[in-house]
Simulated scan of single mutants.
Amino acid sequence: MNIARQSKSSSSPSSQKRPFFSGRNKASLHSYWMSMLFASWLATYLELILTGTQLYTFQARPLTNIFSIDIRFTLIGIPVMTLFCVTALSWMNLLQRTLFLILIGLAMMLFEKISGRLGWIGYSDQWQHMYSFLGYPAFILVVFFFFTWCESARGNI
């Protein structure tokens, strides 16, 4: 329903309604999905390596007789975190990205300490929380590079 019509003498282009997921947005949506799948896959293998070397264990996890990792984290937490981080990083400049990644590292280091106190994760004596401070930003950066590669491969950058 048109409330106001554009004047015939107006030189501005008329605004046509376009579907949200059209053209570039569909390609971007594909890049987001691919990044979320890549991050979930990468996190699963990193978790399998770290739990396999006994650096930490997930004490409260579903399907304990099947999985040595917490699949809720790798199937839900990582994709949601990836969507948030990739979207945020794509809007930021270099300084903002650097500060954001430092903040993510600090937040995950703090979250690990809290989850350890709550009994969700058990850490070995060799585990240093500095690994998370450096590891999570590196992980997010790799996933963001994958996202930008997907975007450039589809011609969206």
Rank of each mutant, 00 (worst) to 15 (best):
V142F: 04
V80K: 05
I121W: 02
T98P: 02
R18T: 13
R72Y: 07
D70V: 00
S11T: 12
R24P: 04
W33S: 15
F38W: 03
L95D: 05
R61W: 07
Q6V: 12
T98H: 09
R117I: 03
R117W: 12
W149F: 15
K17S: 09
S11Q: 14
L103D: 09
S40D: 03
C150P: 03
V142S: 09
I71V: 15
F20Q: 02
G155I: 09
L50W: 10
Y131L: 10
N65A: 10
H30F: 09
E151H: 10
L94V: 10
L99T: 09
S40Y: 00
S132K: 07
Q128L: 12
L29D: 04
S14A: 12
Y123V: 06
Y56P: 06
L29Y: 08
S14F: 10
R5K: 14
Y136T: 02
M92D: 01
S7I: 04
T53I: 13
F100L: 03
L101T: 00
L103E: 05
G116T: 07
W127R: 06
A153I: 05
W149Y: 12
I76H: 02
M130T: 13
L141H: 05
A39Y: 01
F73T: 09
E151N: 11
F133R: 05
I121A: 00
Q59V: 10
F139A: 00
M81F: 13
E47Y: 07
N25C: 04
F133N: 04
R61A: 11
L29Q: 08
E112P: 04
G77H: 02
T51Q: 07
M92N: 06
L83Q: 04
S9I: 11
Q126N: 13
F21H: 03
L89I: 04
L42Y: 00
R72G: 11
I104S: 01
S7N: 14
R18D: 10
Q16R: 10
Y123S: 03
L110G: 11
A43W: 03
L89M: 15
M108G: 09
T51A: 06
N93G: 14
